[in-house]
Design a binder for these strands. Sequence first.
DNA 1: GCCGTTTTCGGCCCGACTGTTTTCAGTCG
Length: 573
Amino acid sequence: MITHNEDIAALFDQLANILEIEDANPFRIRAYRNAARTIRQLPQELSELVEQGADLSELPTIGKDLARKIVEIVHTGNLQALENETRNVPLALLQLTRLPGLGPKRVKRLFQELNIKSEDDLRKAAQAGKIHILPGFGEQTEARILEAIAAHAGEEHRVYLDVAEQVGRRLLDRILGMPGVTRATIAGSYRRRRETVGDLDILVTCQAGSPFMDRFTSDPEVLEVVSRGTTRSTVILHSGLQVDLRVLADENYGSGLHYFTGSRAHNIAIRRRAIRMGLKINEYGVFKGEKRIAGETEEQVFKAVGLPYIEPELRENRGEIEAAQRKALPRLVKQDQILGDLHCHSKASDGHNSLREMALAAKALGYRYLAITDHSSRLRIAHGLDAKRLARQLDEIDRLNEEFQGFQLLKSSEVDILEDGSLDLSDDILERLDLTVCSIHFKFDLPVEQQTDRIIRAMDHPAFNILGHPSGRLIGEREPIRLNMERLMTAARDRGCFLEVNGQPKRLDLTDTYCRMAKELGVRLALGSDAHSTEQLDYMHFCLGQARRGWLEPRDVINCLSLTDLRRLLKRA
DNA sequence: GCCGTTTTCGGCCCGACTGTTTTCAGTCG
């Protein structure tokens, strides 16, 4: 059996959670959590590193002990230390700490005093009125527990970026319209462009003494107020999205934004750096003793700890602070450097707009080119085009291109990669195309090396340019296909092929960590909205976010090239 | 349990809100 990084990280998280219930040294607990986070962000599999005999303690947050434990997990599939702990604390208890208001201390008390081990036990005890008589609990806590269980409040609930953006922008508009408000920004993982959003963190600055919090918590968009203070509130919107709102004075905007943007790991690292320099950082500013030396802007905060500005997408404590220190931060690719979109559909296959409508919309966005990549015929469900229909589309593109000034439609196709690695179009029609996006839409479950071989065989075809949505995952719906990504990327680089970063909010494929791996391996990437309508051309900014999280610069992205340079690159020598 | 521009030992980010309490522990972000 193969042990994946996620399995190892999950075991460390479980151990951390159990140790927390057992009231162990909080810093030891943090060490396990830090390690789990490191492991989840690794692009390569630890099982491979173990096989190669690599020294795992060279990884950040992994010391001698954790390196040994990782080897143990890879070899046995188990972690003895975790098994030892579960003799005292049943694993099921961990589920209970997910309920709001129930942390390790209270869960432990419930277990010891009432032998409560599951959500079911907890519900029965609460209904029987046994909870509120325990020390540290009360009537309200008991009622809240029942509510939380009924509302399935402990379940993970993350939303796609497009949904978060829609809900967030609408709410932001309302907040900006409230009296006394000077500024409002969505911070948190949304600002860092993480691939999904668990809640919206909104920072508001307003004039002193304004009754903003009353206005906000009584807004019709708000379904429920979870907590409410003078500077901080948590609410649930009708859409089900949780909003954490923080109010500060205008002069605290920079330090507040930095604090509220996170990530937590980045903030901790920055604050530790500040301590070493004899400073203290909180949301109100950077302090030297009693004296406040920065806080109005984020630039000031970074400068106070001797660093240049770090873009939000980089703030994950994945080396950005060290890079900033060395003045080696990437100059991240920006929207206005994207000269065209390399993946979209028209109504010839499963899109909603005509070629002309797609072209005009792309031109209006300032693009120089747009590749029309309707499906090939293997994908029947999407009305894929056979050679005959595609040939007619290519003729139409020729006619349309004569109308445009400074803009071109590129002749293309999203070609299915068949099970044996051949392409779903004949060579004579492939030769007429400017480029191809080649994708897998079936046989997702092949073994890892077989799936990798399939794609590399496809890349051997001289018409292969871009591997579309490489992992095929659908966030929350379908797992990624199993690939040897390092071998695949190396093969792509050696053949002059590219990998896509797909902008559909459910795909975001490649992920940020694989973008970064591609950059390190020297493979260039193609950003594609995969738009199925003119409006969805805007999805470009979603894949741009992942690209930026993956440290990509304009030179790493082929659609930053002029049309002439791009055409040259697409002709594989 | 990790880590080192003070350190191989002694630190480890920081503050707000709630509920149950009479001064704070627990939880959360």
